[in-house]
């Protein structure tokens, strides 16, 4: 059975229920198949069938995903690629083939680079604190608490509030003149922050919305994985006299390596595509009068739907796609590095 050796990280595994539940069960049922094949020629046929099953089945299992994805994911992606190579008006439809001109046009616009900068900045402001906070919360949840379910469901509360409502509430809080945040800052003698004028404050406000909604969610994912860390490790560490903080860094973090990678990758992908929050941050939804918080997706939207230049918007979509992939790979490598360092 799989008694985990310390060298083998358990990853995202919330549990090993298979050990207790399943391992005992299937054994008596399964042999019947093999025993019920007395005739030699049939067993050849059967073997071939089994072979076929082994060869084909994996594809059958992944096929529902890929078939559906082909319709609702791949087709749009390829369609977008095709659009990006044409002059294409949203109202007027397809125009001439222009090769990579849309890409060149977009790269030559300073707004593209501004949007890229904003995207990365908001992404860093949201994902880094988020992962750290989620780890801390998960660790707190992982200690023997009273009323565990209450606390666990509690941290998931922000997730049940619709993003539209979150944006509605938070944009009210961050009003420049009459918002609650500036009101409170005023009480302690701090000048009002220009949340909708200055670049960094606007990024902080938007990152706050993101962090609000996703920190608890990620904490639960971490918690699930923490629960799978064999308790003996902690015991051993404690016998060695390691403190709480040391065990956290020398056992918990390395053991969560795969989960951390998972969370970092998914939040990279989500974070770079951030759309709802910046869009609903003011009443115009274009990322600020001076594009202070215009992210790449907002830029894409402005090109496509305000300017009706679908060709350029498609080009941005494809570049964003490539940027996200590059970021995901870099993050994967970096995270793996950091997490495995702790292990050594």
């Amino acid at each position: 059975m799989t008694v985990q050796s310390p060298a083998q990280p358990p990853g995202t595994t919330p549990g090993m229920p298979s050990r207790a539940g399943v391992s005992t069960r299937p054994a008596p049922e399964l042999p019947s198949f093999a025993q019920r094949s007395p005739m030699k020629p049939r067993s050849g046929w059967r073997r071939r069938l089994t072979k076929l099953d082994e060869k084909a089945a994996p594809y059958a299992y992944v096929s529902p995903f890929f078939v559906l994805f082909g319709v609702v994911g791949l087709f749009p992606l390829l369609y977008t690629a095709w659009v990006s190579l044409h002059k294409w008006s949203l109202i007027g439809g397809k125009g001439d083939y222009v090769g990579l001109k849309n890409y060149g046009d977009v790269l030559a616009q300073p707004y593209f680079w501004n949007a890229l900068k904003n995207t990365v900045s908001i992404f860093l402001l949201s994902s880094v604190p988020q992962v750290i906070a989620a780890l801390l919360i998960a660790a707190a949840l992982d200690s023997g608490l009273r009323a565990r379910t209450f606390w666990r469901m509690g941290v998931l509360l922000p997730y049940v509030v619709a993003p539209v409502a979150v944006a509605l509430i938070f944009s009210d809080l961050f009003g420049d003149k009459f918002g609650l945040v500036n009101h409170l800052l005023g009480l302690v003698g701090i000048d009002p922050v220009q949340w909708h004028k200055d670049v960094l404050p606007s990024h902080v406000a938007i990152a706050t919305m993101v962090n609000f909604r996703w920190t608890g969610y990620n904490a639960l994912i971490f918690l699930a994985a923490m629960q799978a860390i064999p308790r003996d490790y902690y015991e051993a560490a404690m016998i060695d006299g390691a403190g709480r903080i040391r065990t956290f860094f020398s056992i918990t973090v390395p053991q969560l390596r795969a989960t951390i990678i998972f969370v970092v990758i998914t939040s990279t992908i989500g974070g770079l595509q951030i759309f709802d929050e910046p869009r609903m941050y003011d009443q115009y939804g274009l990322g600020g009068a001076d594009r202070q918080w215009q992210t790449l997706t907002l830029y894409l939207y402005q090109l496509g739907w305000t300017q009706k230049n679908f060709g350029r918007a498609a080009a941005v979509a494809w570049m964003l796609f490539l940027i996200v992939i590059v970021f995901a790979i870099v993050n994967f490598l970096v995270t793996r590095r950091i997490a495995s360092k702790g292990q050594r």
Partner: peptide, 14 residues
């Protein structure tokens, strides 16, 4: 959340 509407409206037009 008017921006969405503007966007959506133009979107469907297109």
């Amino acid at each position: 959340v008017p921006s969405r509407h503007v966007v959506l409206a133009t979107l469907t037009a297109s």
